[in-house]
Design a protein around this nucleic acid. Sequence first.
DNA 1: TACGTTATTATATGGTAGTTCAATAAGGAA
DNA 2: TTCCTTATTGAACTACCATATAATAACGTA
Lengths: 209, 209
Amino acid sequence: MPKTKKKTSDQPKFARQSAEVRREMLVEAGIACLAKDGILGFTIDRICAEARVSRGLITHHFKSIDGLLAAVYDTMYGKVLSVIEESGVSTTPEARLVGIIDAMFSREFFNRESLNIWLALWGEIANNPALLKVHRKQYARYRADIERALLDVANARGLTIDAGFVAMMLVSLVDGLGVEWFIEPKLLSAKAAREACFRLLEPILGPLR
Amino acid sequence: MPKTKKKTSDQPKFARQSAEVRREMLVEAGIACLAKDGILGFTIDRICAEARVSRGLITHHFKSIDGLLAAVYDTMYGKVLSVIEESGVSTTPEARLVGIIDAMFSREFFNRESLNIWLALWGEIANNPALLKVHRKQYARYRADIERALLDVANARGLTIDAGFVAMMLVSLVDGLGVEWFIEPKLLSAKAAREACFRLLEPILGPLR
DNA sequence: TACGTTATTATATGGTAGTTCAATAAGGAA
DNA sequence: TTCCTTATTGAACTACCATATAATAACGTA
């Protein structure tokens, strides 16, 4: 009885991939493991099983398991940033800000798998120098994007705000809502989380919707 | 050269403790390990070394390492709740709410060790049924306390608010501010975090300070 | 077709994980 | 003082961890 893939002797045992492609595959496998079992599920054995490759590959393409974790973090942030930075580039400042908030609580990011990953990563940043380095780069960009969006709305409305401080509040609230919802999903919906952001911002910026 | 403790043959090799006392000691050792290295530092070997006991004790007093982790979570929440519930019981509603917020960002709770512990625990809740059970009990109490404090202020001022929703916003913001500060301490101070909470609440409840 | 580069596999290794359990001994009770 | 309960120890055991490395083989190139 043949397995799903026939294993006749004339077909290759494995397919070689370029370093770039294989790295990407391993990162995605790492993300899947993190989503499934948190940081304790992020092991060489499980990731390689997920990616259907042998154990040696992670060490070969990333120097170590920590190197892969850093790459995972980079990729996760990259996904969020690309959506934020493409969110309504050629529209009004208000629509852009609303678009960013909507994106944050869209199914793509506001789901249990993603939040499990973020929580696993946050818990390791303080103990993993490679992770901290990646974080510093990406977080600065993230906060700058939010600050810019807030400032644009304020300027368009002739308001003077401490955009850095408001950005910090918004970022904190978004992260906190994610944590609450992840831990106790019944008490909160994506819609309610979105609403909470507007309840924070509208007293500062005026009506946004 | 004798060690710090003399080891003459007539003194006991170890001191027996009541189950309650020993459990408490192991929980504190577990907290110390979690604070130091996050969830990856929460191992039998390290905790027993921290508590200066042999490896068999954790299994004896808690059924497993997960049992200890659940007890740690219970203890951590208990510390927060006792402070919240004792915060200004016989004073004005406003002073009580301000007292709770001040307590949240006091040195006792708003410090790197504590936040490292919370992040480690949050990351495990979804994957550890024992932890989830403890969480449900304590979190409900926590949220109820906050909701009560908010409602008391609103009632005293003749305001109608959705206390449940506002409580959820406040709890989220507090958690999120903790995460931000933990990950990037330079961008935020305890004072600024406290200020952020008032910026959220005062548009809803009026001046609180 | 034959060659050479190197991605990939597969095994070995040393370390550490959690749990079990028989032996030990502390310390209260009789 | 002697006995008894049981907290505590410490070693054994199995499983899994990350990493190093030699052998293998895919596949572009000549």
